[in-house]
Write a protein that binds this DNA or RNA. Structure first.
Length: 185
DNA sequence: CAATAGATCATCT
DNA sequence: GATGATCTATTGC
């Protein structure tokens, strides 16, 4: 009996708390799944690096909506990145899923990313993991508390530490330590 | 090893 | 017209 998806109350909290607590949880899409090992927090009106900084637009509107939904956007003409919407309805906030440890459906992932050499390279970046799990803009706005795209906790508790560093690939607020990594003891 | 160029397009200026 | 919450292959030490 697999674990139930995290409830909406998990996401209806400050973005940094959610970003740290997502480490170790399982991202499931269809028959593929991976353990979340790297996240980044993107705040709302105070965070110049956030898509939500200049207010709602057609692209970022789900960041302003209810928590526990997916915000998937297209970047660099090629890639899609998946976020989890946080905070209460009406307040922008999201956590970018930056890396996973492949757990299930690894053959499917290999088929989708035939150039990945090592197994961990299948999902070792925000653009890679969406390809490996088959996540696209069609999942933008998807409810993470039910449906094919969910985030259950692990079946067995896991011992790990959390490392925090500056976020990657941004220019504004480049020194804020809002990137979180799962480190095994 | 590290550094960099090219791919390619939605969004914003 | 430029930029970007990226990835990969290639070039250069």
């Amino acid at each position: 009996m697999p674990s139930a998806p995290l409830p909406r109350s998990f996401y209806a909290r400050p973005t940094v708390e959610v970003a740290r607590d997502l480490l170790g949880k399982i991202l499931v899409h269809g028959r593929t799944a991976g353990r979340i090992i790297e996240t980044e927090a993107y705040l709302g009106s105070q965070d110049e690096a956030s898509h939500a900084f200049r207010g709602p637009t057609p692209r970022n509107r789900v960041m302003f909506g209810p928590p526990g939904h997916a915000y998937v956007y297209f970047i660099y003409g090629m890639y899609e990145c998946m976020n989890v919407v946080t905070e209460t309805d009406g307040t922008a906030g999201a956590v970018l899923i930056r890396a996973l440890e492949p757990l299930r459906g690894i053959e499917t992932m290999r088929r989708r990313r035939p150039h990945a050499k090592r197994e961990q390279d299948l999902t070792s970046g925000p653009g890679k993991l969406t390809i490996a799990l088959g996540i696209t803009r069609r999942q933008n706005g998807a409810d993470l508390t039910r449906g094919p795209l969910t985030i259950p906790p692990p079946d067995h508790p896991l011992q790990f530490e959390i490392e925090s560093t500056p976020r990657i690939g941004i220019r504004r607020c480049a020194d804020w330590p809002l990137r979180f990594l799962l480190r095994y003891p």
